[in-house]
Lab assay of single mutants.
Amino acid sequence: TEEYEYTDEQQAREAAREWREKGYTVTIEEHNGRWRVKTG
């Protein structure tokens, strides 16, 4: 599992979409105004 943090929701969603296209399972969670994208 890798985790990436973004301050911008749009960036987080874009990144998540790219990971999904590569076949990863992706979770996005908002935490204190930051967006965490977890792949695994």
Rank of each mutant, 00 (worst) to 15 (best):
T1L: 13
T1Q: 12
T1G: 13
T1E: 13
E2M: 15
E2L: 14
E2T: 14
E2R: 14
E2D: 13
E3Q: 10
E3T: 14
E3M: 14
E3R: 07
E3H: 10
Y4W: 13
Y4V: 08
E5W: 15
E5D: 09
E5P: 10
E5K: 04
Y6D: 01
Y6W: 05
Y6L: 03
Y6N: 01
Y6T: 03
Y6M: 02
Y6C: 03
T7D: 15
T7R: 08
T7I: 11
T7A: 14
D8T: 14
D8Q: 05
D8N: 12
D8V: 05
D8C: 04
E9P: 06
E9I: 10
E9G: 04
E9H: 06
Q10A: 13
Q10Y: 11
Q10K: 12
Q10T: 11
Q10F: 12
Q10D: 12
Q11E: 14
Q11V: 09
A12E: 00
A12C: 04
A12K: 00
A12F: 01
R13H: 11
R13A: 08
R13G: 04
R13S: 06
R13D: 05
R13M: 13
R13V: 10
R13F: 10
R13N: 10
E14D: 12
E14F: 06
E14C: 05
E14T: 09
E14I: 09
A15G: 04
A15F: 07
A15W: 04
A15P: 00
A16D: 01
A16L: 05
A16Y: 07
A16S: 04
R17W: 07
R17I: 08
R17M: 09
R17S: 08
E18Q: 13
E18L: 14
E18A: 13
E18W: 14
E18D: 09
W19I: 04
W19H: 03
W19P: 01
W19S: 02
R20Q: 13
R20S: 10
R20H: 08
E21M: 09
E21V: 07
E21T: 07
E21K: 11
E21P: 01
E21S: 10
E21A: 11
E21N: 10
K22A: 08
K22W: 06
K22N: 05
K22L: 11
K22F: 04
K22M: 10
K22G: 04
G23A: 02
G23M: 02
G23P: 00
Y24T: 03
Y24H: 05
Y24P: 00
Y24Q: 04
Y24F: 12
Y24S: 02
T25P: 06
T25R: 09
T25G: 05
V26I: 05
V26T: 06
V26G: 01
V26L: 02
V26W: 01
T27M: 08
T27I: 12
T27G: 03
I28R: 00
I28F: 04
I28S: 01
I28T: 03
I28P: 00
I28M: 06
I28G: 00
I28Q: 01
I28K: 01
E29L: 09
E29V: 11
E30I: 09
E30P: 07
E30R: 08
E30G: 06
H31L: 11
H31R: 10
H31I: 14
H31W: 10
N32V: 03
N32D: 11
N32Q: 08
N32M: 07
N32T: 04
G33Y: 02
G33L: 03
G33T: 02
G33M: 03
G33C: 04
R34V: 15
R34G: 09
R34D: 03
R34S: 09
W35C: 01
R36F: 15
R36V: 15
R36Q: 11
R36A: 08
R36H: 14
V37F: 03
V37T: 02
V37K: 00
K38S: 10
K38A: 07
K38L: 12
K38I: 15
K38R: 12
T39E: 04
T39P: 09
T39I: 15
T39N: 05
T39V: 15
T39R: 14
G40T: 15
G40M: 15
G40H: 15
G40V: 15
G40S: 15
